[in-house]
Design a protein around this nucleic acid. Structure first.
Length: 295
DNA sequence: AACACGTGGAC
DNA sequence: TGTCCAAGTGT
């Protein structure tokens, strides 16, 4: 199983900039944050511009958080940009400006959770960690469990299965990225290309006749009319503006005043937007002291 | 544990 | 055309 996947990866891996031979831990970290819930094709140009402008954590930390949000563009979930800016500040303060290599130090940074800490420790520092993203979880669900889709959230059983399969340290990172790539290119969610799969001979799901998902329905996220849509409208206006925006301009983005105010208040509470005197708003200029504090 | 959190491409 | 989904995290 390992040889089949590694051989497949050696000839099918995409040539992505954050995988290049001269990659840096900072470049890997930035890519991992950008790739959270966001397709590779949309990340690549933004990543290139970001790394050119902020080639190390200290350069990002020295800039305004609003500039990070602006440079984030339309990648979505702009709180990731704010957390990446905060992570850069923490790296400067706690780690002398160098991305830490330990899983524990990584997961302590804002915006970095179980997956991203394992990914950076593996792909930037060559360590042996189980890397469980949506691709790996789907591949294991099919190959090992014979199910079409993994559980809604990562389980202990999945971590155990991933650890059982994780090879020796020398090739563990390559194994992880290879399984991820297999999930992204072949063992896809919607229309898997099983004929091209290096694991087609051993896949439990395929052997079982590719049975459809049976558990509770996987609910898609609502979008139209949600606060998320309103927040997106507001952020788009603020990103594209040079400086502070009159509230009247924000009021044009959404007809329902109650929902609009709620969305704007939420953005301010999240530290993504800053009120300015004279009924104006702008992207944040200073790092928020207590944004997203537990309630 | 369930939910909020953006955006746009694919089918 | 509307649904589904993309290298998750924090609460």
């Amino acid at each position: 199983m390992h040889d089949a996947v590694l051989t497949w990866y050696s000839t099918h891996a995409r040539d992505l900039p954050w995988r290049s031979a001269d990659r840096t831990p900072w470049g890997v970290l930035v890519s991992e944050i950008m790739l959270q819930q966001t397709p590779v094709a949309r990340v690549e140009p933004v990543w290139r511009a970001w790394i050119e402008r902020w080639p190390e954590p200290a350069s990002l930390a020295a800039d305004e958080p609003g500039e990070a949000i602006r440079a984030w563009g339309r990648l979505g979930y702009p709180r990731r940009a704010l957390r990446l800016h905060a992570a850069a500040g923490a790296i400067v303060e706690r780690h002398d400006g160098r991305v830490p290599s330990s899983y524990d130090a990584l997961i302590a940074l804002p915006g970095i959770g179980e997956y991203t800490a394992a990914a950076v420790a593996s792909f930037a520092f060559g360590q042996r960690h189980t890397v469980l993203d949506t691709n790996v979880r789907r591949v294991l669900a099919r190959v090992v469990d014979g199910r079409q889709y993994p559980p809604a959230s990562t389980t202990a059983a999945e971590r155990r299965a991933a650890l059982d399969l994780l090879p020796e340290a020398a090739i563990a990172p390559t194994w992880s990225v290879a399984v991820m790539e297999l999930g992204a290119l072949v063992c896809t969610a919607r229309s898997p290309r099983c004929e091209e799969c290096p694991l087609r001979a051993t896949c439990a799901w395929r052997h079982a006749g590719s049975p459809p998902h049976d558990g509770p329905p996987r609910r898609a996220q609502a979008w139209a009319g949600t606060d998320r849509q309103v927040r997106g409208r507001l952020m788009a206006v603020l990103r594209e503006a040079e400086g502070p925006v009159p509230k009247a301009r924000l009021d044009e983005t959404w007809p329902d005043a109650v929902q609009r105010e709620r969305a704007l208040d939420g953005l301010v509470a999240d530290g993504l937007v800053e009120p300015v005197e004279g009924h104006r708003y702008r992207l944040p200029v200073t790092t928020p002291q207590h944004a997203e504090r537990a309630t």
